[in-house]
Design a protein around this nucleic acid. Structure first.
Lengths: 223, 223
DNA sequence: TGCTCCACAATATGATCAAATTTTTTGATG
DNA sequence: CATCAAAAAATTTGATCATATTGTGGAGCA
Protein backbone atom coordinates (compact mmCIF):
# COMPACT_ATOMS: atom_id res chain seq x y z
CA UNK A 1 0.00 0.00 0.00
CA UNK A 2 2.90 2.36 0.58
CA UNK A 3 4.35 1.32 -2.73
CA UNK A 4 3.29 4.48 -4.44
CA UNK A 5 6.88 5.65 -4.83
CA UNK A 6 7.12 9.31 -5.72
CA UNK A 7 9.20 8.74 -8.84
CA UNK A 8 11.57 11.62 -8.17
CA UNK A 9 12.21 11.84 -4.46
CA UNK A 10 13.06 9.76 -1.44
CA UNK A 11 9.47 10.28 -0.25
CA UNK A 12 10.89 12.78 2.21
CA UNK A 13 11.29 16.06 0.38
CA UNK A 14 8.03 17.57 -0.87
CA UNK A 15 7.52 17.92 -4.60
CA UNK A 16 7.47 21.70 -4.58
CA UNK A 17 10.88 21.71 -2.92
CA UNK A 18 12.17 19.23 -5.47
CA UNK A 19 10.89 21.28 -8.37
CA UNK A 20 12.35 24.41 -6.82
CA UNK A 21 15.82 22.88 -6.60
CA UNK A 22 15.76 21.60 -10.14
CA UNK A 23 14.52 24.84 -11.58
CA UNK A 24 16.99 26.80 -9.49
CA UNK A 25 19.84 24.75 -10.89
CA UNK A 26 18.58 25.21 -14.40
CA UNK A 27 18.65 28.96 -13.96
CA UNK A 28 21.76 29.27 -11.83
CA UNK A 29 23.96 27.40 -14.26
CA UNK A 30 22.62 29.02 -17.37
CA UNK A 31 20.79 26.01 -18.74
CA UNK A 32 17.85 28.29 -19.21
CA UNK A 33 19.45 31.27 -20.91
CA UNK A 34 18.85 34.88 -19.88
CA UNK A 35 15.90 36.28 -21.79
CA UNK A 36 14.35 32.89 -22.29
CA UNK A 37 10.70 32.55 -21.25
CA UNK A 38 9.53 30.11 -18.62
CA UNK A 39 6.00 28.74 -18.70
CA UNK A 40 4.19 26.81 -16.03
CA UNK A 41 2.92 24.20 -18.41
CA UNK A 42 6.26 23.85 -20.06
CA UNK A 43 7.78 22.97 -16.70
CA UNK A 44 5.04 20.58 -15.66
CA UNK A 45 5.97 18.59 -18.77
CA UNK A 46 9.75 19.03 -18.59
CA UNK A 47 10.07 18.11 -14.90
CA UNK A 48 6.97 16.07 -14.95
CA UNK A 49 5.41 17.50 -11.87
CA UNK A 50 1.98 18.78 -10.96
CA UNK A 51 0.93 22.31 -11.60
CA UNK A 52 0.79 23.48 -7.98
CA UNK A 53 4.38 22.58 -7.08
CA UNK A 54 5.61 24.27 -10.24
CA UNK A 55 3.68 27.42 -9.44
CA UNK A 56 5.17 27.59 -5.97
CA UNK A 57 8.69 27.04 -7.22
CA UNK A 58 8.31 29.81 -9.76
CA UNK A 59 7.00 32.21 -7.12
CA UNK A 60 9.98 31.50 -4.93
CA UNK A 61 12.44 32.09 -7.73
CA UNK A 62 10.69 35.32 -8.65
CA UNK A 63 10.93 36.47 -5.06
CA UNK A 64 14.65 35.71 -5.11
CA UNK A 65 15.18 37.65 -8.32
CA UNK A 66 16.13 34.57 -10.31
CA UNK A 67 13.07 34.97 -12.52
CA UNK A 68 11.34 38.07 -13.69
CA UNK A 69 7.60 38.53 -13.73
CA UNK A 70 6.81 40.45 -16.90
CA UNK A 71 3.53 42.32 -16.66
CA UNK A 72 1.40 40.04 -18.82
CA UNK A 73 1.60 36.95 -16.63
CA UNK A 74 4.75 36.06 -18.50
CA UNK A 75 7.86 34.88 -16.69
CA UNK A 76 11.45 34.78 -17.91
CA UNK A 77 15.09 34.68 -16.85
CA UNK A 78 16.17 38.32 -16.62
CA UNK A 79 18.75 39.87 -18.90
CA UNK A 80 21.32 41.87 -17.00
CA UNK A 81 21.75 45.51 -17.88
CA UNK A 82 25.12 47.17 -17.33
CA UNK A 83 23.48 49.09 -14.48
CA UNK A 84 22.40 45.78 -12.93
CA UNK A 85 25.95 44.48 -13.15
CA UNK A 86 27.23 47.56 -11.37
CA UNK A 87 24.78 46.98 -8.55
CA UNK A 88 25.84 43.35 -8.33
CA UNK A 89 29.50 44.29 -8.17
CA UNK A 90 28.84 46.75 -5.39
CA UNK A 91 26.71 44.33 -3.40
CA UNK A 92 29.06 41.36 -3.71
CA UNK A 93 32.18 43.29 -2.80
CA UNK A 94 30.34 44.77 0.16
CA UNK A 95 28.96 41.51 1.53
CA UNK A 96 31.25 38.63 0.65
CA UNK A 97 34.44 39.84 2.32
CA UNK A 98 32.56 40.03 5.61
CA UNK A 99 31.30 36.48 5.14
CA UNK A 100 34.84 35.25 4.52
CA UNK A 101 36.07 37.19 7.53
CA UNK A 102 33.64 35.28 9.71
CA UNK A 103 34.34 32.02 7.89
CA UNK A 104 38.05 32.33 8.61
CA UNK A 105 37.34 32.72 12.30
CA UNK A 106 35.36 29.48 12.35
CA UNK A 107 37.36 27.37 9.90
CA UNK A 108 39.16 24.25 11.12
CA UNK A 109 42.13 22.80 9.22
CA UNK A 110 39.82 20.05 7.94
CA UNK A 111 37.43 22.64 6.58
CA UNK A 112 40.25 24.27 4.68
CA UNK A 113 41.42 20.92 3.32
CA UNK A 114 37.92 20.36 2.03
CA UNK A 115 37.97 23.73 0.29
CA UNK A 116 41.30 22.87 -1.28
CA UNK A 117 39.88 19.68 -2.72
CA UNK A 118 37.01 21.59 -4.30
CA UNK A 119 39.45 24.10 -5.72
CA UNK A 120 41.59 21.34 -7.20
CA UNK A 121 38.58 19.89 -8.99
CA UNK A 122 37.91 23.38 -10.22
CA UNK A 123 41.38 23.69 -11.72
CA UNK A 124 40.86 20.37 -13.42
CA UNK A 125 37.60 21.55 -14.96
CA UNK A 126 39.30 24.70 -16.21
CA UNK A 127 42.15 22.73 -17.74
CA UNK A 128 39.91 20.41 -19.72
CA UNK A 129 37.51 23.23 -20.61
CA UNK A 130 34.42 21.70 -19.01
CA UNK A 131 32.26 24.77 -18.62
CA UNK A 132 29.44 23.12 -16.66
CA UNK A 133 31.86 21.52 -14.21
CA UNK A 134 33.60 24.87 -13.82
CA UNK A 135 30.38 26.74 -13.09
CA UNK A 136 29.18 24.14 -10.61
CA UNK A 137 32.57 23.86 -8.95
CA UNK A 138 33.03 27.56 -8.62
CA UNK A 139 29.63 27.87 -6.99
CA UNK A 140 30.40 24.94 -4.74
CA UNK A 141 33.63 26.57 -3.61
CA UNK A 142 31.97 29.80 -2.64
CA UNK A 143 29.04 28.00 -1.04
CA UNK A 144 31.35 25.90 1.09
CA UNK A 145 33.07 29.07 2.19
CA UNK A 146 29.73 30.68 3.07
CA UNK A 147 28.69 27.70 5.11
CA UNK A 148 31.65 28.22 7.44
CA UNK A 149 30.60 31.76 8.29
CA UNK A 150 27.59 30.74 10.37
CA UNK A 151 25.95 33.94 9.18
CA UNK A 152 22.66 32.84 7.62
CA UNK A 153 21.36 36.24 6.67
CA UNK A 154 24.51 37.41 4.92
CA UNK A 155 24.70 34.06 3.17
CA UNK A 156 21.14 34.31 1.93
CA UNK A 157 21.95 37.72 0.48
CA UNK A 158 25.05 36.39 -1.26
CA UNK A 159 23.09 33.42 -2.53
CA UNK A 160 20.48 35.72 -3.98
CA UNK A 161 23.19 37.58 -5.85
CA UNK A 162 24.50 34.37 -7.38
CA UNK A 163 21.05 33.66 -8.69
CA UNK A 164 21.15 36.96 -10.53
CA UNK A 165 24.58 36.88 -12.13
CA UNK A 166 24.93 33.09 -12.37
CA UNK A 167 22.94 32.78 -15.60
CA UNK A 168 25.34 35.17 -17.30
CA UNK A 169 28.47 33.28 -16.31
CA UNK A 170 27.92 30.66 -18.97
CA UNK A 171 27.73 33.43 -21.51
CA UNK A 172 30.96 34.88 -20.15
CA UNK A 173 32.73 31.53 -20.36
CA UNK A 174 31.55 31.05 -23.90
CA UNK A 175 32.96 34.43 -24.77
CA UNK A 176 36.37 34.39 -23.15
CA UNK A 177 36.97 30.66 -22.65
CA UNK A 178 37.66 28.88 -19.39
CA UNK A 179 41.42 29.14 -19.78
CA UNK A 180 41.33 32.90 -19.45
CA UNK A 181 39.46 32.77 -16.17
CA UNK A 182 41.31 33.98 -13.12
CA UNK A 183 40.51 33.64 -9.47
CA UNK A 184 42.01 34.33 -6.06
CA UNK A 185 41.09 31.04 -4.46
CA UNK A 186 44.65 30.01 -3.67
CA UNK A 187 45.40 33.36 -2.04
CA UNK A 188 42.19 33.18 -0.03
CA UNK A 189 42.93 29.68 1.20
CA UNK A 190 46.49 30.41 2.23
CA UNK A 191 45.36 33.48 4.17
CA UNK A 192 42.71 31.36 5.86
CA UNK A 193 45.25 28.70 6.73
CA UNK A 194 47.39 31.39 8.30
CA UNK A 195 44.36 32.58 10.25
CA UNK A 196 44.64 36.03 8.72
CA UNK A 197 40.95 36.87 8.36
CA UNK A 198 41.50 40.37 7.07
CA UNK A 199 43.80 39.15 4.34
CA UNK A 200 41.38 36.38 3.34
CA UNK A 201 38.61 38.96 3.10
CA UNK A 202 40.76 41.18 0.87
CA UNK A 203 41.59 38.21 -1.35
CA UNK A 204 37.94 37.32 -1.83
CA UNK A 205 37.15 40.94 -2.56
CA UNK A 206 39.75 40.75 -5.33
CA UNK A 207 38.27 37.52 -6.56
CA UNK A 208 34.78 38.95 -6.65
CA UNK A 209 35.80 42.15 -8.39
CA UNK A 210 37.90 40.34 -10.98
CA UNK A 211 35.10 37.93 -11.79
CA UNK A 212 32.42 40.55 -11.94
CA UNK A 213 34.52 42.83 -14.09
CA UNK A 214 34.65 40.07 -16.64
CA UNK A 215 30.89 39.87 -16.53
CA UNK A 216 30.65 43.62 -16.94
CA UNK A 217 33.06 43.52 -19.85
CA UNK A 218 31.03 40.92 -21.72
CA UNK A 219 27.70 42.54 -20.88
CA UNK A 220 28.92 45.89 -22.12
CA UNK A 221 29.76 44.40 -25.49
CA UNK A 222 26.50 42.47 -25.74
CA UNK A 223 24.20 45.35 -24.82
CA UNK B 1 -19.72 45.10 -17.55
CA UNK B 2 -16.86 43.94 -15.38
CA UNK B 3 -18.88 44.84 -12.32
CA UNK B 4 -18.17 41.55 -10.69
CA UNK B 5 -16.02 43.30 -8.11
CA UNK B 6 -13.73 40.89 -6.34
CA UNK B 7 -14.54 42.20 -2.87
CA UNK B 8 -10.90 42.84 -2.12
CA UNK B 9 -9.18 43.99 -5.27
CA UNK B 10 -9.57 46.33 -8.20
CA UNK B 11 -10.13 43.29 -10.45
CA UNK B 12 -6.65 43.94 -11.80
CA UNK B 13 -4.24 42.49 -9.28
CA UNK B 14 -4.32 38.68 -8.97
CA UNK B 15 -5.40 37.19 -5.69
CA UNK B 16 -2.02 35.69 -4.86
CA UNK B 17 -0.47 39.13 -5.18
CA UNK B 18 -3.16 40.61 -2.95
CA UNK B 19 -2.67 37.97 -0.30
CA UNK B 20 1.07 38.46 -0.52
CA UNK B 21 0.79 42.18 0.17
CA UNK B 22 -1.54 41.76 3.09
CA UNK B 23 0.53 39.05 4.68
CA UNK B 24 3.69 41.00 4.07
CA UNK B 25 2.22 44.00 5.87
CA UNK B 26 1.09 41.85 8.74
CA UNK B 27 4.63 40.59 9.21
CA UNK B 28 6.52 43.77 8.41
CA UNK B 29 4.68 45.85 10.96
CA UNK B 30 4.73 43.29 13.69
CA UNK B 31 1.05 42.46 13.64
CA UNK B 32 2.08 38.85 13.58
CA UNK B 33 4.63 38.74 16.37
CA UNK B 34 8.04 37.09 16.03
CA UNK B 35 7.81 33.47 17.06
CA UNK B 36 4.14 33.23 16.21
CA UNK B 37 3.10 30.37 13.92
CA UNK B 38 1.45 30.92 10.57
CA UNK B 39 -0.84 28.30 9.11
CA UNK B 40 -2.18 28.09 5.61
CA UNK B 41 -5.65 27.27 6.68
CA UNK B 42 -5.62 29.98 9.29
CA UNK B 43 -4.83 32.53 6.61
CA UNK B 44 -7.44 31.25 4.16
CA UNK B 45 -9.97 32.05 6.87
CA UNK B 46 -8.44 35.29 8.15
CA UNK B 47 -7.95 36.84 4.71
CA UNK B 48 -10.68 34.83 3.19
CA UNK B 49 -8.83 33.68 0.16
CA UNK B 50 -8.40 30.37 -1.57
CA UNK B 51 -5.73 27.92 -0.62
CA UNK B 52 -3.53 28.29 -3.69
CA UNK B 53 -2.97 32.06 -3.43
CA UNK B 54 -2.17 31.75 0.27
CA UNK B 55 0.28 28.99 -0.43
CA UNK B 56 2.11 31.05 -3.04
CA UNK B 57 2.23 34.11 -0.81
CA UNK B 58 3.76 32.08 2.00
CA UNK B 59 6.39 30.63 -0.33
CA UNK B 60 7.35 34.08 -1.46
CA UNK B 61 7.69 35.38 2.06
CA UNK B 62 9.77 32.36 3.03
CA UNK B 63 12.06 33.01 0.08
CA UNK B 64 12.44 36.59 1.25
CA UNK B 65 13.29 35.55 4.80
CA UNK B 66 10.14 37.08 6.27
CA UNK B 67 8.90 33.68 7.32
CA UNK B 68 10.76 30.66 8.51
CA UNK B 69 10.08 27.14 7.34
CA UNK B 70 10.45 24.93 10.39
CA UNK B 71 11.26 21.34 9.53
CA UNK B 72 7.86 19.76 10.06
CA UNK B 73 5.99 21.78 7.46
CA UNK B 74 5.37 24.45 10.03
CA UNK B 75 5.88 28.11 9.27
CA UNK B 76 6.45 31.01 11.63
CA UNK B 77 7.79 34.54 11.91
CA UNK B 78 11.44 34.19 12.92
CA UNK B 79 12.82 35.37 16.22
CA UNK B 80 16.00 37.39 15.83
CA UNK B 81 19.09 36.24 17.65
CA UNK B 82 21.74 38.76 18.65
CA UNK B 83 23.92 37.24 15.93
CA UNK B 84 21.16 37.87 13.39
CA UNK B 85 20.95 41.50 14.48
CA UNK B 86 24.67 41.91 13.97
CA UNK B 87 24.36 40.59 10.45
CA UNK B 88 21.49 42.94 9.76
CA UNK B 89 23.45 45.91 11.05
CA UNK B 90 26.36 45.05 8.84
CA UNK B 91 24.25 44.51 5.76
CA UNK B 92 22.15 47.63 6.16
CA UNK B 93 25.09 49.94 6.79
CA UNK B 94 26.86 48.42 3.81
CA UNK B 95 23.99 48.71 1.35
CA UNK B 96 21.77 51.64 2.25
CA UNK B 97 24.34 54.44 2.07
CA UNK B 98 25.04 53.45 -1.53
CA UNK B 99 21.33 53.55 -2.32
CA UNK B 100 21.04 57.01 -0.86
CA UNK B 101 24.13 58.11 -2.77
CA UNK B 102 22.43 57.14 -6.00
CA UNK B 103 19.11 58.56 -4.85
CA UNK B 104 20.67 61.95 -4.19
CA UNK B 105 22.04 62.02 -7.72
CA UNK B 106 18.56 61.47 -9.15
CA UNK B 107 16.44 63.49 -6.73
CA UNK B 108 14.56 66.55 -7.95
CA UNK B 109 13.50 69.31 -5.54
CA UNK B 110 9.94 67.98 -5.78
CA UNK B 111 11.12 64.53 -4.73
CA UNK B 112 12.78 66.02 -1.69
CA UNK B 113 9.66 68.01 -0.83
CA UNK B 114 7.74 64.78 -0.92
CA UNK B 115 10.21 63.16 1.44
CA UNK B 116 9.88 66.12 3.80
CA UNK B 117 6.14 65.69 3.92
CA UNK B 118 6.50 62.04 4.85
CA UNK B 119 9.00 62.96 7.53
CA UNK B 120 6.64 65.57 8.98
CA UNK B 121 3.89 62.98 9.28
CA UNK B 122 6.42 60.79 11.00
CA UNK B 123 7.22 63.45 13.59
CA UNK B 124 3.53 63.82 14.21
CA UNK B 125 3.14 60.08 14.80
CA UNK B 126 6.03 60.15 17.24
CA UNK B 127 4.60 63.09 19.13
CA UNK B 128 1.22 61.46 19.69
CA UNK B 129 2.78 58.07 20.34
CA UNK B 130 1.03 56.23 17.49
CA UNK B 131 3.30 53.24 17.09
CA UNK B 132 1.64 51.80 13.99
CA UNK B 133 1.70 55.15 12.19
CA UNK B 134 5.34 55.54 13.17
CA UNK B 135 6.33 52.12 11.86
CA UNK B 136 4.48 52.60 8.60
CA UNK B 137 5.74 56.14 8.14
CA UNK B 138 9.32 55.23 8.83
CA UNK B 139 9.15 52.45 6.28
CA UNK B 140 7.46 54.75 3.82
CA UNK B 141 10.23 57.31 4.22
CA UNK B 142 12.98 54.83 3.50
CA UNK B 143 11.03 53.25 0.64
CA UNK B 144 10.52 56.61 -1.01
CA UNK B 145 14.22 57.21 -0.71
CA UNK B 146 14.99 53.82 -2.27
CA UNK B 147 12.69 54.48 -5.17
CA UNK B 148 14.78 57.47 -6.20
CA UNK B 149 17.94 55.39 -6.51
CA UNK B 150 16.84 53.56 -9.65
CA UNK B 151 18.86 50.60 -8.39
CA UNK B 152 16.39 47.70 -8.30
CA UNK B 153 18.77 45.04 -7.08
CA UNK B 154 20.15 47.03 -4.17
CA UNK B 155 16.61 48.06 -3.28
CA UNK B 156 15.39 44.49 -3.26
CA UNK B 157 18.20 43.60 -0.88
CA UNK B 158 17.35 46.49 1.43
CA UNK B 159 13.70 45.54 1.27
CA UNK B 160 14.52 42.01 2.24
CA UNK B 161 16.37 43.31 5.28
CA UNK B 162 13.35 45.35 6.39
CA UNK B 163 11.29 42.20 6.27
CA UNK B 164 13.67 40.64 8.73
CA UNK B 165 14.07 43.35 11.34
CA UNK B 166 10.68 45.04 10.83
CA UNK B 167 8.76 42.60 13.03
CA UNK B 168 11.06 43.44 15.92
CA UNK B 169 10.59 47.20 15.64
CA UNK B 170 7.20 47.05 17.30
CA UNK B 171 8.80 45.25 20.20
CA UNK B 172 11.48 47.93 20.37
CA UNK B 173 8.91 50.72 20.37
CA UNK B 174 6.97 49.00 23.11
CA UNK B 175 10.13 48.79 25.16
CA UNK B 176 11.61 52.24 24.82
CA UNK B 177 8.60 54.31 23.70
CA UNK B 178 8.28 56.36 20.54
CA UNK B 179 9.47 59.55 22.21
CA UNK B 180 12.95 58.14 22.74
CA UNK B 181 13.37 57.28 19.08
CA UNK B 182 15.97 59.22 17.18
CA UNK B 183 16.64 59.48 13.49
CA UNK B 184 18.82 61.35 11.00
CA UNK B 185 16.12 62.13 8.49
CA UNK B 186 16.49 65.91 8.72
CA UNK B 187 20.24 65.70 8.23
CA UNK B 188 19.82 63.36 5.28
CA UNK B 189 17.30 65.60 3.61
CA UNK B 190 19.32 68.77 4.01
CA UNK B 191 22.38 67.07 2.55
CA UNK B 192 20.27 65.87 -0.36
CA UNK B 193 18.88 69.32 -0.90
CA UNK B 194 22.44 70.62 -1.03
CA UNK B 195 23.27 67.91 -3.56
CA UNK B 196 25.95 66.50 -1.27
CA UNK B 197 25.52 62.79 -1.98
CA UNK B 198 28.40 61.67 0.21
CA UNK B 199 27.06 63.56 3.18
CA UNK B 200 23.57 62.20 2.66
CA UNK B 201 25.00 58.70 2.55
CA UNK B 202 26.87 59.28 5.79
CA UNK B 203 23.73 60.63 7.44
CA UNK B 204 21.73 57.56 6.46
CA UNK B 205 24.50 55.35 7.70
CA UNK B 206 24.18 57.10 11.05
CA UNK B 207 20.43 56.68 10.95
CA UNK B 208 20.68 53.00 10.21
CA UNK B 209 23.26 52.32 12.86
CA UNK B 210 21.41 54.28 15.51
CA UNK B 211 18.17 52.48 14.77
CA UNK B 212 19.70 49.05 14.61
CA UNK B 213 21.65 49.57 17.81
CA UNK B 214 18.36 50.16 19.57
CA UNK B 215 17.13 46.87 18.18
CA UNK B 216 20.30 45.16 19.33
CA UNK B 217 19.96 46.66 22.77
CA UNK B 218 16.40 45.40 23.21
CA UNK B 219 17.17 41.99 21.70
CA UNK B 220 20.14 41.54 24.00
CA UNK B 221 17.94 42.07 27.02
CA UNK B 222 15.19 39.80 25.74
CA UNK B 223 17.41 36.90 24.82
C1' DT C 1 -5.81 49.37 -39.71
C1' DG C 2 -8.95 48.08 -36.44
C1' DC C 3 -12.45 44.93 -34.89
C1' DT C 4 -14.45 40.45 -33.11
C1' DC C 5 -13.91 36.01 -31.71
C1' DC C 6 -11.25 31.91 -30.53
C1' DA C 7 -7.81 29.14 -28.36
C1' DC C 8 -4.57 28.58 -25.01
C1' DA C 9 -2.14 29.52 -20.83
C1' DA C 10 -2.53 31.21 -16.21
C1' DT C 11 -5.32 31.78 -12.11
C1' DA C 12 -8.12 29.98 -8.58
C1' DT C 13 -11.25 26.49 -6.20
C1' DG C 14 -12.37 22.55 -3.68
C1' DA C 15 -11.75 17.70 -3.11
C1' DT C 16 -8.73 14.11 -1.67
C1' DC C 17 -4.93 12.04 0.55
C1' DA C 18 -1.09 11.97 3.84
C1' DA C 19 1.31 13.46 7.79
C1' DA C 20 1.52 15.36 12.30
C1' DT C 21 -0.27 16.98 16.44
C1' DT C 22 -3.48 16.66 20.09
C1' DT C 23 -6.65 14.19 22.84
C1' DT C 24 -8.46 10.16 24.69
C1' DT C 25 -8.13 5.69 26.25
C1' DT C 26 -6.05 2.15 28.59
C1' DG C 27 -2.90 -0.40 31.37
C1' DA C 28 0.76 -0.77 34.69
C1' DT C 29 2.71 0.61 39.01
C1' DG C 30 3.17 2.60 43.61
C1' DC D 1 -7.37 3.98 44.16
C1' DA D 2 -4.56 7.57 42.11
C1' DT D 3 -0.98 8.80 38.90
C1' DC D 4 1.66 8.54 35.03
C1' DA D 5 2.93 6.79 30.58
C1' DA D 6 2.29 4.65 26.37
C1' DA D 7 -0.72 3.60 22.61
C1' DA D 8 -4.47 4.59 19.69
C1' DA D 9 -8.01 7.43 17.81
C1' DA D 10 -9.39 11.81 16.20
C1' DT D 11 -8.64 16.24 14.59
C1' DT D 12 -6.01 19.55 12.41
C1' DT D 13 -3.04 21.00 8.76
C1' DG D 14 -0.26 20.48 4.61
C1' DA D 15 0.47 18.60 -0.20
C1' DT D 16 -1.20 17.60 -4.48
C1' DC D 17 -4.32 17.19 -8.25
C1' DA D 18 -8.30 17.63 -11.40
C1' DT D 19 -11.10 20.93 -12.91
C1' DA D 20 -13.50 25.31 -13.60
C1' DT D 21 -12.78 30.15 -14.60
C1' DT D 22 -10.64 34.16 -16.36
C1' DG D 23 -7.85 36.93 -19.12
C1' DT D 24 -4.45 37.68 -23.11
C1' DG D 25 -2.54 37.30 -27.54
C1' DG D 26 -3.36 36.30 -32.03
C1' DA D 27 -6.09 34.72 -36.12
C1' DG D 28 -9.45 35.95 -39.29
C1' DC D 29 -12.25 39.30 -41.42
C1' DA D 30 -14.11 43.71 -42.69
Amino acid sequence: MKDHVNLTNESKVPAHEMVYRKLRDLVLFGEIAPGQAVTIQGLTDQLDAGMTPVREAIRRLIAEGALDFMGNRRVCVPNLSVQNVNELIFARQAIEPQIILLATQHATPEDIDHLCRIDTELDQAIKIGDVTAYLRGNYRFHKALYALSKAPILVSIADGLWLRFGPSLRVVCGRIGTLNLTDQHKETLSAMRAGDAEKAARAIREDVIQGMEQVRHVMTQTA
